[in-house]
Every structure is written in C-alpha cells, then in structure tokens.
C-alpha cells in the first residue's frame, strides 16, 4: 500500500458519473436515481476507484432520502416504503459510511506521511550565530512535531471510528439488505455479497495499518476480536489466504509490542 487509495478517474468513468445528472433532474424519480447511482458506485468500489465513487455520491442531492419518503407518501399516503426502496436507501447509507471511511483514511495517510515537519539540519563547521539560530529552529521544530502528533492522533481516532462504522454496520452488516425483496434482481444481490468479500478484508488491513503505524498495538490485536465475533461473522467474508494474511499482520503487531517489553498482546508482563 503506497499512498492514498483510488484517486484516478478515466473518461469512460466520467461518462457514467455524468449520466446520473439526468436521473436526479426529476425529483419524482429520485428512488430510481438512487438505485442507479448505487449500482454505478458498486462497480467503482469493486475496482477501488474511490474518487469516482465519491463523485457519483455527490451527484445525489443531500436530501434524497427525504425526497424518496415524501414521494412515496404523496403517492400512497403511507410511510412504509416498498422493499426495493428501503434496501436502496440502506445501500446508499452503506455507501456513505464507506466513503467517509476511505476519505478519513486518505486524510490520515497524507497527514502521517507528508504532514510530518522536517527536522532542520546544520552544516558542519557552522558559525556561532548559525548554531544559536539552529537551536532556536530545533525548538520550533519540536513544537511542530508535538502539534503534528496531536493532530495525527485526532485523525487516527476519527478514522478508526469511521472504519468501525463500515465493519460493524448496524443491523446485519455492510451491504446486507434488511428487508427481503422477492422482486430483487439476482445480480444486485450477487454484487453486494461480492463487495463484502472484496472490501471488508481490505478495510481490515487498512485499519490495521492505521493502528500499527500509530503504535496502538493492543488494538491491532483486538482486530481479531472484531473479525472472529459471532455477532458480526466478519470472518465469513475472508478466504483462507486472507485470514492467514491477517494473522501475519497481527503477528507483526505482536512482535512490535514484545519489543516494548510487554506480553504478545500488549499487556503488562506478569
């Protein structure tokens, strides 16, 4: 993993994104627009084109959920949406959680790797006044590092929360429909479950990176609790080789924490 994820958009992508404009034009078709936008976002997430996902999401006005409810109420007098609209809205929320998480990760990445202040250097044989000036710059630098570290920890905290939002998405999990829709397209169901298997293990490894880089090793190892829990059953979306890779990552964290003279899970040695 070299940098912020999924920043490129091709011309073809651009066409798909702009097609959504035509769908949001008429408010009465908002439910359909949302479903189509979801479908386009699914394909972008599958190829990890994050910037493109975000643009599609941005095409839907912020009040879209509200509009869908109001349209239905005007049409039928009821607030109970049909299953396909319910699922569409839930999927839209899943998209939002995903976008927030990756945005936060990218901000974290930039802050962590490019935001770090540079240590002032001094030439050998510098004059007395140069050395005094240098001491002053070092002090400033140390303050900047403190500030940077503080910001990084804040960003880490927010990133962590956003990742848990996706990994522990309420009521059954991310990209899982809440209501059964007998008329649902098979392909949508398939794509959603494929997105779970593609995305969730990947997000676990990103979260591990965030926690490991910021030396929160005990929490790294607690990712095992998250993945193995029977309530969320995340382990089911991992292939065997992915589980093995995860164990390798956890092992690295464990070795790092052993170097700090703690036990393999980061607790005080007895």
């Amino acid at each position: 993993l070299e940098g912020p994820v999924g920043t490129t958009i091709s011309d073809e992508d651009r066409q798909k994104i702009e097609a959504i404009d035509w769908l949001v034009f008429e408010p009465s078709q908002r439910a359909e627009a949302m479903k189509q936008a979801n479908a386009v976002m699914r394909t972008f997430i599958a190829v990890r084109k994050h910037a493109a996902v975000k643009e599609v999401f941005g095409k839907l006005p912020g009040d879209s959920v509200d509009v869908v409810y109001k349209n239905w109420q005007r049409l039928t007098g009821s607030t109970d949406l049909p299953p396909s609209d319910m699922n569409g809205i839930r999927e839209y929320m899943c998209m939002k959680a995903y976008i927030d998480a990756i945005d936060n990760f990218n901000d974290w990445f930039n802050l962590c790797h490019h935001g770090k202040p540079h240590k002032p250097e001094i030439l050998t044989g510098a004059s007395f006044t140069d050395r005094v000036a240098h001491d002053h710059r070092i002090k400033q630098y140390e303050q900047e590092v403190d500030r940077w570290h503080h910001n990084l920890m804040l960003q880490t905290k927010s990133t962590k929360a956003r990742f848990y939002n996706v990994l522990l998405f309420a009521d059954g999990g991310w990209m899982v429909d809440l209501v059964k829709d007998d008329e649902a397209e098979r392909s949508r169901q398939l794509q959603m479950s494929q997105l779970r298997t593609l995305t969730l293990p990947y997000m676990c490894s990103l979260l591990h990176k965030v926690l490991h880089t910021t030396e929160q090793f005990t929490e790294c190892l607690q990712l095992a609790d998250l993945v193995s829990s029977e309530q969320h059953k995340l382990y089911e979306v991992f292939r065997k080789d992915e589980l093995q890779k995860l164990l390798d990552l956890l092992r690295e964290s464990s070795l790092a924490v052993l170097d700090l003279n703690r036990d393999p899970l980061g607790y005080e040695l007895p």
């Binding site: 993945v227 193995s228 065997k240 164990l247």
Partner: peptide
C-alpha cells in the same frame, strides 16, 4: 483468568488460526 479482554483476544486469535488452517 486475569484479564477478560486478554482472554477474549487469545480466544479470537485461536479461532482465526483454526479457520485459517487448510
């Protein structure tokens, strides 16, 4: 028997290792 959180993580790791086994 000392720490609940630690026991939990050991169990989780053990389960993951079992699931990862070929």
């Amino acid at each position: 028997t000392g720490l609940l959180a630690k026991k939990k993580t050991l169990l989780s790791l053990s389960k993951l290792a079992a699931l990862a086994s070929e």
